[in-house]
Amino acid sequence: LKHLCRKALRSFLTTYQVLALPIPKKMKEFLTY
C-alpha cells in the first residue's frame, strides 16, 4: 500500500515539490527515495 501511495505521489509531484511540502523529514525521505 505504501509503495502504491508513493508511486501515485511521485507521478504528479517532482522531487522539488515533495521537499517543499510541510511534512516530516522522514516522510520526505520516503517519498523521494
Rank of each mutant, 00 (worst) to 15 (best):
L19Y: 12
K2I: 12
L4M: 03
M27A: 02
K2H: 00
L1M: 06
K25R: 03
R10Q: 09
T14W: 11
L1C: 08
A8Y: 06
L21M: 08
A8N: 02
L9R: 12
P24T: 03
H3D: 13
K26H: 03
Y16W: 14
C5E: 01
M27P: 00
E29Q: 04
T14C: 04
T15L: 14
F30M: 02
P24C: 11
C5M: 12
T32N: 04
I23R: 04
E29K: 03
K26G: 09
K2A: 08
L4K: 11
A8T: 07
T15H: 00
Y33G: 13
A20D: 11
L4Q: 07
F12R: 00
R6D: 04
L31V: 05
Q17W: 14
L19C: 06
K2V: 11
H3W: 02
F30Y: 05
S11Y: 13
A20L: 13
K28S: 06
T14M: 08
R10M: 09
I23A: 04
C5F: 11
L1S: 02
I23N: 03
P24A: 09
L21P: 09
K7G: 02
H3C: 07
L4S: 05
P24E: 01
F30R: 02
P22N: 15
L31W: 05
R10N: 07
T15N: 00
K2E: 03
P22D: 14
L1R: 03
T32D: 03
Y33L: 11
L1T: 03
S11F: 15
L31K: 00
L13Q: 07
A8H: 02
T15S: 05
Y16D: 14
T14K: 13
R10L: 10
T14P: 01
A8E: 00
K2T: 08
Q17G: 12
T32A: 12
S11L: 14
C5T: 08
K26S: 09
K25E: 06
V18F: 14
R6K: 12
K25C: 04
E29D: 10
I23Q: 04
T14I: 12
P22M: 15
Y33K: 11
R10V: 08
P22S: 14
P24G: 03
P22C: 14
P22W: 15
H3I: 04
K28M: 10
K7C: 03
H3V: 09
R6M: 11
H3N: 10
K28E: 07
R6N: 03
C5K: 09
K25N: 04
K28Q: 06
Y33M: 15
L1D: 04
P22T: 13
E29S: 01
T14N: 05
L4N: 04
L4E: 02
R6Y: 05
Y33R: 14
K28G: 05
H3K: 11
M27R: 00
H3M: 05
T14D: 09
F30K: 02
I23P: 04
M27K: 00
K28A: 10
L31P: 01
K28R: 11
A20R: 14
S11V: 15
T15C: 10
S11M: 13
E29M: 04
Y16P: 03
T15W: 15
L21S: 10
V18E: 13
C5V: 12
Q17A: 10
H3S: 12
A8K: 07
L13V: 10
E29P: 01
K25T: 06
A20M: 10
H3F: 01
Y16N: 14
L21Q: 09
L9M: 08
F12M: 07
R6S: 06
T32V: 13
L31F: 08
I23S: 08
F12W: 01
K25G: 02
K7V: 07
C5A: 12
Y16C: 15
T15A: 14
R10T: 09
P24D: 00
Y16Q: 12
L13D: 00
Q17N: 11
L31E: 00
V18A: 14
H3G: 06
A8M: 06
T32Q: 07
T32Y: 13
L4I: 08
K7T: 04
A20T: 06
M27T: 00
A20P: 09
V18C: 10
H3R: 12
M27I: 12
K7E: 10
S11T: 09
M27S: 00
R10A: 12
L13H: 06
F30W: 15
L31Q: 00
Y33D: 10
M27Q: 00
A8Q: 02
A8G: 01
F30E: 02
T14A: 10
P22Y: 13
T14E: 10
P24Q: 04
